[in-house]
């Protein structure tokens, strides 16, 4: 027990220290890569709150990411508001859209929830895709005036790192909270939850708003790092990619999605250097992983680790 507690504290601490000093010895390329991993990892972790801890088939999570990104981008380009307004707008927009979509979706059972959700999400995408004089349509918005302090590669990196760490900490607390525990009970058995006095739909709605808000935050970080937004940020293929990150990393673990994001983003980047056909390599790797490790990478090692510690006990 004390040993696992030790591990649970030391590993993140070492990792965090390494990340904090990365700009001292990493090249621009690595700083950019890690920024992307953190952003997509935060996005995947927010999805996993619903998927792994709430048992909800949120098929189109990228919509909230895109909405957050557009909210920040639009406030920065179209209004003279201070920068903090732009960054506060992201979780707000993601959360509100989540609330709207959630209100009509949570009354449905698992599969039909997912299907209505993907339909509504696609509808949002079509509007953004075509509303040229507001969202820039399929061109998107480029050259967004990100505040000077965080516009450089290193500045954006530190901002992303800080926001991601704080967000992950909050999400972790939420999962450990009475709400989070109840949410996991809803995942395991919604019918029984109702019978012990839990209003399942309200909990699911709150979960969706939280997940949507953090996806929005991830979107605003994307604007910080890239300085542009485009409709692909809320296209369904991205939703599937982050779903893969969750399943690949292990969706019953908290840090699994972050690991999954690291694997996928690195694969995309490094294989992309060597061959134009990196998606094929990615596809083959994914197929192998799904065939061989159905419970995800981290889930796989967790299971082995539990088995080992169990056998030591006996």
């Amino acid at each position: 027990m004390t040993q696992s507690r030790f591990q649970a504290l030391v590993i993140p601490a070492v990792l965090l220290l390494a990340l904090a000093f990365l700009p001292q010895f990493g090249t621009r390329f690595y700083i950019y890569l890690v920024s992307l991993i953190l952003i997509q990892g935060l996005l995947a972790t927010s999805l996993n709150l619903l998927l792994g801890f709430g048992g909800m088939y949120q098929f189109h999570h990228a919509v909230f990411y895109g909405t957050g990104a557009y909210a920040t981008a639009l406030v920065l380009t179209k209004t003279g508001s201070p920068a903090w307004v732009a960054f506060a707008a992201a979780p707000l927009a993601g959360g509100i859209l989540s609330l709207l979509i959630g209100v009509v979706c949570v009354r449905l059972s698992k599969l039909y929830f997912g299907m209505l959700q993907i339909s509504l999400g696609s509808l949002v995408w079509t509007i953004v895709y075509r509303w040229y004089n507001f969202t820039g349509g399929d061109d998107g918005i480029h050259g967004i005036p990100v505040p000077d302090a965080i516009s450089s590669g290193v500045g954006a990196y530190y901002f992303t790192l800080a926001v991601t760490v704080v967000s992950l900490f909050i999400l972790y607390r939420i999962i450990r909270s009475p709400f989070g525990m109840t949410f996991q009970a809803v995942r395991d058995n919604p019918v029984r939850c109702e019978a012990i006095g839990v209003n399942v739909r309200v909990h699911q709605l709150i979960g969706m708003v939280i997940a949507g808000a953090f996806a929005g935050i991830a979107g605003s970080l994307f604007v910080t790092v890239e300085g542009s937004v485009f409709p692909e940020l809320m296209f369904w293929t991205l939703s599937l990619e982050i779903l893969i990150m969750c399943l690949l990393g292990g969706w019953f673990t908290f840090f699994g999605p972050m690991l999954g994001a690291a694997v996928i983003v690195s694969l995309q980047t490094f294989v992309g250097i060597y061959t134009e056909y990196w998606t094929m390599v990615l596809g083959i790797v994914l197929m192998m992983l799904i065939l061989l490790l159905p419970q995800g990478v981290l889930g796989f090692f967790m299971e082995r680790w539990i088995k080992i510690s169990r056998s030591e006990e006996n």
Binding site: L243, I244, L247, Y277, T279, M280, G283, I284, M287, I290
Partner: peptide, 15 residues
């Protein structure tokens, strides 16, 4: 899992 598997398949087919 099947959904993700077929998605991986699209990546291969497209390339």
């Amino acid at each position: 899992m099947l959904l993700l598997f077929t998605f991986s398949l699209t990546l291969v087919f497209n390339d």
